[in-house]
Amino acid sequence: MKSKAPTSELDRYDRHILEELQRDGGLSNQRLAERIALSPSPCLRRVQALEEAGIIRKRVALLDPQRLGLALMVLMHISMDRHTPERFEHFEAEIRRSPEVLECYLITGHDADYQIKVVVRDMAHFQDFLLNRLTRIEGVTGVHSSFVLRRVVDTTELPMY
């Protein structure tokens, strides 16, 4: 099992590594080492330790949905009929199978149980997702959709305090 090192145990090199990799996850070890002013071997050992600790979960390429024809982003609140572990497990398993769903959260503080972020090509695609898949998941009793007009803050970078 991966250890969970708290951020208080990270030194300035670890924090700098995390900052740089959040900006560009494809950096070579050599380039990363240059940016943080450390030689390549200790830099690589630190990156591997951050990965083993689960702090770095994975490195990905961030794609532009607009350029891929995914023009519509929707935030949706989903209400369930029963609040049982089995009902939630079933919903979560079904939602994981939907490539349109970018994020899914079990939430509190609303009249909804889940919030999902969905990206689709257009309104027809959204209608198909909503009526033929989402509302057909057993237990879904309500859906409230909000269409994203503009991204005001769009980052994946976590602050390094």
Rank of each mutant, 00 (worst) to 15 (best):
1 M>L: 13
6 P>N: 07
9 E>F: 08
10 L>G: 01
11 D>K: 05
12 R>H: 15
14 D>P: 10
21 L>V: 06
22 Q>S: 06
23 R>Q: 07
25 G>W: 00
26 G>Q: 04
31 R>E: 05
33 A>C: 06
37 A>F: 13
39 S>A: 11
40 P>S: 12
45 R>M: 12
47 V>S: 08
48 Q>D: 15
51 E>P: 10
55 I>N: 01
58 K>H: 12
60 V>M: 15
62 L>M: 12
64 D>M: 06
67 R>G: 13
72 L>C: 10
73 M>T: 15
75 L>K: 11
76 M>E: 09
81 D>E: 14
81 D>Y: 14
81 D>F: 13
83 H>G: 11
87 R>Y: 09
90 H>Q: 06
90 H>P: 02
92 E>L: 03
93 A>S: 11
94 E>S: 02
99 P>L: 00
105 Y>K: 02
105 Y>S: 01
106 L>N: 05
107 I>Q: 03
110 H>T: 14
110 H>G: 14
111 D>A: 11
111 D>M: 13
112 A>D: 06
117 K>A: 07
121 R>Y: 07
122 D>L: 06
122 D>R: 03
123 M>D: 15
124 A>H: 06
126 F>L: 02
127 Q>R: 09
130 L>C: 04
131 L>N: 05
134 L>I: 05
137 I>A: 02
138 E>K: 15
140 V>W: 04
143 V>P: 04
145 S>Y: 03
145 S>A: 12
147 F>S: 09
149 L>V: 14
151 R>E: 08
152 V>D: 02
155 T>C: 02
161 Y>W: 13
